[in-house]
Write a protein that binds this DNA or RNA. Sequence first.
DNA 1: CCTAATCTCTCTAGCGGCTATAGGTTCAAG
DNA 2: CTTGAACCTATAGCCGCTAGAGAGATTAGG
Lengths: 137, 137
Amino acid sequence: MFSIGDLSRRTGVKVPTIRYYEQMGLIAAAGRTEGNQRRYDRDGLERLSFIRHARDLGLSIEAIRELAELSAHPEEPCADAHRIAREHRAEIHARIERLRRLEAELGRIEQMCDADRVGECRIIEALADHGLCSGEH
Amino acid sequence: MFSIGDLSRRTGVKVPTIRYYEQMGLIAAAGRTEGNQRRYDRDGLERLSFIRHARDLGLSIEAIRELAELSAHPEEPCADAHRIAREHRAEIHARIERLRRLEAELGRIEQMCDADRVGECRIIEALADHGLCSGEH
DNA sequence: CCTAATCTCTCTAGCGGCTATAGGTTCAAG
DNA sequence: CTTGAACCTATAGCCGCTAGAGAGATTAGG
């Protein structure tokens, strides 16, 4: 049996965050000692590791809740799990594309200025004027 | 003179967001009509466009505040503006790298499963077990 | 000039995903 | 049995908005 602190050290999820997940219904309410402290077993540990990993991959609490509910019904089709993964990957891809454009744009803006007084600084000017941008963002 | 709604339409910044920026001290408190409604001039419009554009580029409110203060002192050196742009670009770059790893990882996870029942679905399994991951994330 | 429709005002609360603090209780090592 | 670390609940705060209520201002048409 692990205390919440043990669980935290083993999973890397901070103690208040574990309590938060419980409150959000992501993990079942843990058993308690006589003195009202939470105690976890191996199942609780695995469940939290799953959540931790999915969060690291950027999945939202909602998506994780869906996946967790799926895994409680092993005889159901798993098309939904595929869909969630696919959708999330598409979203990540879109974010990468967007960030790439921003990076390019900022790089361009940085290079525009070789003055050393704010008055002639083209960085601030370029930030002020979207019209100077090369592409969309 | 523009009403807050005019300003909103011209800049694409929503009305409550404009009021929020004012409250945060990003834009100066606008002049008011006798009936207490905000009225803006061309300066206000430009200032808000600047903020909008910088936000689009992903700069934080804090960074924008810094840049805005810089641009109020045209005779000062503009090294700070360069620093802000550079730091922000580095951060974007780091985010891209991280997202790229996530994308690869998710792609790998997706391909692991060709079952159609949750019980054998390796997507959920792979999410549960960080040890199955190829790299860092 | 009056009315009706559309803005606009302030204030407050909510979003996601935590994080921090306060003030109290329980556990485990010595 | 004592101490000190870990735990408990409850509440508030973070960012960057967004939404809603309820009241007042402005403007176009008749």
